[in-house]
Protein backbone atom coordinates (compact mmCIF):
# COMPACT_ATOMS: atom_id res chain seq x y z
CA UNK A 1 0.00 0.00 0.00
CA UNK A 2 2.78 2.32 0.89
CA UNK A 3 4.42 1.93 -2.48
CA UNK A 4 1.10 2.60 -4.17
CA UNK A 5 0.77 5.94 -2.44
CA UNK A 6 4.29 6.59 -3.41
CA UNK A 7 3.73 5.83 -7.04
CA UNK A 8 0.71 8.02 -7.28
CA UNK A 9 2.25 10.98 -5.58
CA UNK A 10 5.87 10.91 -6.37
CA UNK A 11 6.72 9.17 -9.53
CA UNK A 12 7.50 12.47 -11.03
CA UNK A 13 11.14 12.41 -11.52
CA UNK A 14 12.89 15.37 -12.93
CA UNK A 15 16.40 14.08 -12.79
CA UNK A 16 15.80 11.01 -14.87
CA UNK A 17 18.59 11.70 -17.28
CA UNK A 18 21.37 12.26 -14.79
CA UNK A 19 22.20 8.62 -14.48
CA UNK A 20 25.25 7.88 -16.55
CA UNK A 21 27.89 8.28 -13.85
CA UNK A 22 26.09 5.85 -11.58
CA UNK A 23 25.52 3.27 -14.27
CA UNK A 24 29.22 3.02 -14.90
CA UNK A 25 29.76 2.14 -11.29
CA UNK A 26 27.66 -0.99 -11.20
CA UNK A 27 28.77 -4.60 -11.14
CA UNK A 28 26.98 -7.69 -12.30
CA UNK A 29 25.97 -10.10 -9.57
CA UNK A 30 25.35 -13.46 -11.14
CA UNK A 31 22.13 -15.03 -9.95
CA UNK A 32 21.89 -18.19 -7.93
CA UNK A 33 20.10 -19.51 -4.93
CA UNK A 34 20.73 -19.27 -1.23
CA UNK A 35 19.18 -20.30 2.07
CA UNK A 36 18.19 -17.25 4.01
CA UNK A 37 18.20 -17.08 7.78
CA UNK A 38 14.47 -17.67 8.01
CA UNK A 39 14.38 -20.60 5.60
CA UNK A 40 14.56 -24.31 6.17
CA UNK A 41 17.21 -26.47 4.61
CA UNK A 42 15.03 -27.53 1.75
CA UNK A 43 13.89 -24.05 0.81
CA UNK A 44 16.36 -22.37 -1.45
CA UNK A 45 15.54 -18.85 -2.55
CA UNK A 46 16.33 -18.07 -6.16
CA UNK A 47 17.93 -14.75 -6.89
CA UNK A 48 18.07 -13.73 -10.58
CA UNK A 49 21.12 -11.86 -11.88
CA UNK A 50 21.22 -8.14 -11.22
CA UNK A 51 23.54 -5.17 -11.31
CA UNK A 52 24.40 -3.42 -8.08
CA UNK A 53 26.03 -0.07 -7.32
CA UNK A 54 29.66 -0.63 -6.38
CA UNK A 55 29.36 1.94 -3.57
CA UNK A 56 26.57 3.27 -1.38
CA UNK A 57 25.04 6.55 -2.57
CA UNK A 58 27.17 9.44 -1.28
CA UNK A 59 26.47 12.92 0.04
CA UNK A 60 27.67 14.44 -3.21
CA UNK A 61 25.42 12.14 -5.27
CA UNK A 62 22.50 13.12 -3.13
CA UNK A 63 23.24 16.86 -3.33
CA UNK A 64 22.88 16.56 -7.07
CA UNK A 65 19.63 14.67 -6.62
CA UNK A 66 18.02 17.32 -4.41
CA UNK A 67 19.20 20.07 -6.75
CA UNK A 68 17.41 18.29 -9.59
CA UNK A 69 14.43 17.34 -7.43
CA UNK A 70 13.80 20.21 -5.00
CA UNK A 71 10.86 18.48 -3.36
CA UNK A 72 13.39 16.18 -1.68
CA UNK A 73 15.28 19.09 -0.09
CA UNK A 74 15.12 18.88 3.63
CA UNK A 75 13.14 22.09 3.98
CA UNK A 76 10.61 20.95 1.42
CA UNK A 77 10.14 17.27 2.08
CA UNK A 78 6.70 16.10 3.20
CA UNK A 79 6.84 14.56 6.67
CA UNK A 80 4.73 11.63 5.56
CA UNK A 81 7.70 10.60 3.43
CA UNK A 82 10.57 11.56 5.68
CA UNK A 83 10.49 12.33 9.37
CA UNK A 84 12.00 15.46 10.84
CA UNK A 85 15.56 14.15 11.14
CA UNK A 86 15.78 13.70 7.37
CA UNK A 87 19.23 14.94 6.29
CA UNK A 88 19.60 16.39 9.76
CA UNK A 89 23.40 16.28 9.58
CA UNK A 90 23.52 18.49 6.49
CA UNK A 91 24.19 22.19 6.91
CA UNK A 92 21.27 23.25 4.74
CA UNK A 93 19.25 22.17 1.72
CA UNK A 94 22.16 21.88 -0.70
CA UNK A 95 25.29 22.01 1.44
CA UNK A 96 26.52 19.10 3.47
CA UNK A 97 28.67 21.24 5.79
CA UNK A 98 32.25 20.81 6.96
CA UNK A 99 31.46 17.99 9.36
CA UNK A 100 30.66 15.63 6.50
CA UNK A 101 32.66 14.32 3.59
CA UNK A 102 31.29 14.50 0.04
CA UNK A 103 32.26 10.86 -0.49
CA UNK A 104 30.64 9.51 2.66
CA UNK A 105 27.48 7.44 2.30
CA UNK A 106 24.45 9.70 2.61
CA UNK A 107 22.49 8.83 5.75
CA UNK A 108 19.39 10.11 7.54
CA UNK A 109 17.44 9.11 4.43
CA UNK A 110 13.96 7.62 4.52
CA UNK A 111 12.86 4.62 2.46
CA UNK A 112 10.68 6.91 0.34
CA UNK A 113 13.65 9.15 -0.42
CA UNK A 114 15.96 6.26 -1.21
CA UNK A 115 13.34 4.71 -3.42
CA UNK A 116 12.77 7.98 -5.29
CA UNK A 117 16.48 8.43 -5.76
CA UNK A 118 16.93 5.00 -7.31
CA UNK A 119 13.92 5.43 -9.57
CA UNK A 120 15.31 8.71 -10.80
CA UNK A 121 18.46 6.84 -11.78
CA UNK A 122 16.39 4.31 -13.66
CA UNK A 123 17.18 1.82 -10.92
CA UNK A 124 15.48 0.45 -7.83
CA UNK A 125 16.29 -0.52 -4.27
CA UNK A 126 17.56 -4.08 -3.81
CA UNK A 127 15.23 -6.64 -2.25
CA UNK A 128 16.25 -8.23 1.03
CA UNK A 129 17.12 -11.41 -0.83
CA UNK A 130 19.29 -9.58 -3.34
CA UNK A 131 21.05 -7.65 -0.61
CA UNK A 132 21.62 -10.72 1.56
CA UNK A 133 22.75 -12.75 -1.43
CA UNK A 134 25.47 -10.35 -2.51
CA UNK A 135 26.47 -9.65 1.09
CA UNK A 136 27.32 -13.31 1.72
CA UNK A 137 30.57 -12.72 -0.13
CA UNK A 138 33.93 -11.84 1.29
CA UNK A 139 36.95 -10.86 -0.82
CA UNK A 140 37.41 -14.33 -2.26
CA UNK A 141 34.22 -16.32 -1.95
CA UNK A 142 30.64 -15.77 -3.08
CA UNK A 143 29.38 -17.35 0.14
CA UNK A 144 31.72 -16.83 3.07
CA UNK A 145 29.07 -17.11 5.75
CA UNK A 146 30.65 -20.16 7.31
CA UNK A 147 34.00 -18.44 7.82
CA UNK A 148 34.70 -17.28 11.34
CA UNK A 149 36.72 -14.28 10.18
CA UNK A 150 33.90 -13.07 7.94
CA UNK A 151 31.37 -13.20 10.74
CA UNK A 152 33.69 -11.66 13.28
CA UNK A 153 34.29 -8.71 10.98
CA UNK A 154 30.58 -8.09 10.64
CA UNK A 155 29.78 -8.55 14.29
CA UNK A 156 32.63 -6.30 15.34
CA UNK A 157 31.09 -3.53 13.29
CA UNK A 158 27.57 -4.12 14.58
CA UNK A 159 28.85 -3.83 18.10
CA UNK A 160 30.61 -0.52 17.57
CA UNK A 161 28.50 2.58 18.15
CA UNK A 162 29.29 6.14 17.07
CA UNK A 163 30.71 5.65 13.60
CA UNK A 164 33.24 8.20 12.43
CA UNK A 165 33.34 9.76 8.98
CA UNK A 166 34.16 6.92 6.65
CA UNK A 167 34.43 7.49 2.91
CA UNK A 168 33.02 4.93 0.50
CA UNK A 169 35.48 2.24 -0.48
CA UNK A 170 37.04 2.13 2.99
CA UNK A 171 36.00 -1.47 3.62
CA UNK A 172 36.72 -4.52 1.53
CA UNK A 173 35.90 -5.15 -2.12
CA UNK A 174 33.94 -8.36 -2.27
CA UNK A 175 33.87 -11.29 -4.65
CA UNK A 176 31.48 -9.44 -6.98
CA UNK A 177 33.58 -6.26 -6.98
CA UNK A 178 31.22 -4.45 -4.63
CA UNK A 179 32.42 -2.41 -1.67
CA UNK A 180 31.12 -1.50 1.77
CA UNK A 181 28.24 -3.90 2.22
CA UNK A 182 29.54 -4.53 5.72
CA UNK A 183 31.26 -2.07 7.96
CA UNK A 184 30.08 1.34 6.79
CA UNK A 185 26.32 1.88 7.18
CA UNK A 186 23.11 -0.13 7.29
CA UNK A 187 21.33 -0.09 3.93
CA UNK A 188 17.68 0.17 2.95
CA UNK A 189 16.05 -2.65 1.02
CA UNK A 190 12.88 -2.37 -0.99
CA UNK A 191 10.95 -4.89 1.11
CA UNK A 192 12.66 -4.13 4.44
CA UNK A 193 9.48 -4.72 6.44
CA UNK A 194 8.33 -7.89 4.74
CA UNK A 195 10.05 -10.08 7.27
CA UNK A 196 8.57 -8.98 10.53
CA UNK A 197 10.75 -9.12 13.54
CA UNK A 198 8.04 -7.97 15.87
CA UNK A 199 10.29 -6.62 18.55
CA UNK A 200 9.38 -9.48 20.79
CA UNK A 201 12.08 -11.70 19.39
CA UNK A 202 11.31 -14.65 21.62
CA UNK A 203 7.73 -14.71 20.43
CA UNK A 204 8.96 -14.78 16.85
CA UNK A 205 10.99 -17.83 17.65
CA UNK A 206 8.04 -19.64 19.18
CA UNK A 207 5.26 -18.96 16.81
CA UNK A 208 6.35 -17.75 13.44
CA UNK A 209 7.60 -20.91 11.86
CA UNK A 210 8.18 -19.23 8.54
CA UNK A 211 10.54 -16.81 10.10
CA UNK A 212 12.46 -18.95 12.52
CA UNK A 213 11.59 -22.57 12.11
CA UNK A 214 12.18 -24.72 15.16
CA UNK A 215 15.53 -26.10 14.19
CA UNK A 216 16.89 -22.77 13.05
CA UNK A 217 15.85 -21.14 16.27
CA UNK A 218 17.34 -23.81 18.46
CA UNK A 219 20.43 -24.11 16.34
CA UNK A 220 20.82 -20.39 15.83
CA UNK A 221 23.92 -20.28 17.89
CA UNK A 222 26.57 -19.73 15.29
CA UNK A 223 27.86 -16.35 14.41
CA UNK A 224 26.42 -16.41 10.92
CA UNK A 225 22.89 -16.44 12.23
CA UNK A 226 23.59 -13.85 14.87
CA UNK A 227 24.87 -11.38 12.32
CA UNK A 228 21.82 -11.94 10.15
CA UNK A 229 19.51 -11.73 13.16
CA UNK A 230 20.81 -8.27 13.85
CA UNK A 231 20.15 -7.13 10.30
CA UNK A 232 16.62 -8.47 10.43
CA UNK A 233 16.11 -6.79 13.78
CA UNK A 234 17.19 -3.39 12.48
CA UNK A 235 14.99 -3.76 9.42
CA UNK A 236 12.08 -4.80 11.59
CA UNK A 237 12.46 -1.68 13.73
CA UNK A 238 12.05 0.67 10.78
CA UNK A 239 9.15 2.41 9.13
CA UNK A 240 9.32 3.80 5.62
CA UNK A 241 9.51 7.44 6.73
CA UNK A 242 12.17 6.74 9.40
CA UNK A 243 15.70 7.99 9.02
CA UNK A 244 18.80 6.94 10.93
CA UNK A 245 22.30 8.25 11.34
CA UNK A 246 23.68 4.82 10.42
CA UNK A 247 21.35 4.02 7.56
CA UNK A 248 22.11 4.69 3.89
CA UNK A 249 21.34 2.88 0.65
CA UNK A 250 22.47 1.87 -2.81
CA UNK A 251 20.58 0.91 -5.94
CA UNK A 252 20.33 -2.10 -8.22
CA UNK A 253 19.03 -2.85 -11.64
CA UNK A 254 17.64 -6.12 -12.95
CA UNK A 255 20.21 -7.62 -15.31
CA UNK A 256 17.85 -8.15 -18.24
CA UNK A 257 16.83 -4.53 -18.53
CA UNK A 258 20.43 -3.50 -18.89
CA UNK A 259 21.17 -6.17 -21.44
CA UNK A 260 18.24 -5.04 -23.52
CA UNK A 261 19.43 -1.47 -23.72
Amino acid sequence: MISKIYNILFFLCLGLLQTQAQNNAMKLVKGGSYIPLYGVDTVLVKVPSFFMDVYPVTNQDYVQFVKDNPKWKKSKVIQLFAEENYLRHWQNDEEIGVENLPVEPVVNISWFAANAYCECQGKRLPSIDEWEYVAMANEKMADARKLKSYNEFILAWYEKPKPKNNPIGSTFKNYWGIYDLHGLVWEWTSDFNSVLVSGESRKDVDTDTNLFCGSAAIGATDLMNYAAFMRYAIRGSLKANYVMKNLGFRCVKTADTIKNK
Binding site: S198, G199, I234
Partner: peptide
Amino acid sequence: KLPHNIDLHAVTGPGGGATSSFVA
Protein backbone atom coordinates in the same frame (compact mmCIF):
# COMPACT_ATOMS: atom_id res chain seq x y z
CA LYS B 1 23.87 1.07 15.85
CA LEU B 2 21.06 -1.25 16.86
CA PRO B 3 17.36 -1.37 17.66
CA HIS B 4 16.46 -2.20 21.26
CA ASN B 5 13.46 -2.71 23.50
CA ILE B 6 12.69 -3.37 27.15
CA ASP B 7 11.01 -6.28 28.92
CA LEU B 8 10.18 -5.36 32.50
CA HIS B 9 9.35 -8.33 34.68
CA ALA B 10 7.09 -5.99 36.68
CA VAL B 11 4.77 -5.64 33.70
CA THR B 12 1.61 -7.69 33.35
CA GLY B 13 1.23 -7.95 29.59
CA PRO B 14 2.68 -9.67 26.52
CA GLY B 15 6.43 -9.57 26.35
CA GLY B 16 6.63 -7.42 29.47
CA GLY B 17 6.52 -4.38 27.23
CA ALA B 18 9.03 -5.69 24.70
CA THR B 19 6.64 -5.65 21.76
CA SER B 20 5.50 -2.12 22.44
CA SER B 21 8.92 -0.66 23.08
CA PHE B 22 10.90 -1.91 20.07
CA VAL B 23 12.70 1.18 18.88
CA ALA B 24 15.19 2.05 16.12
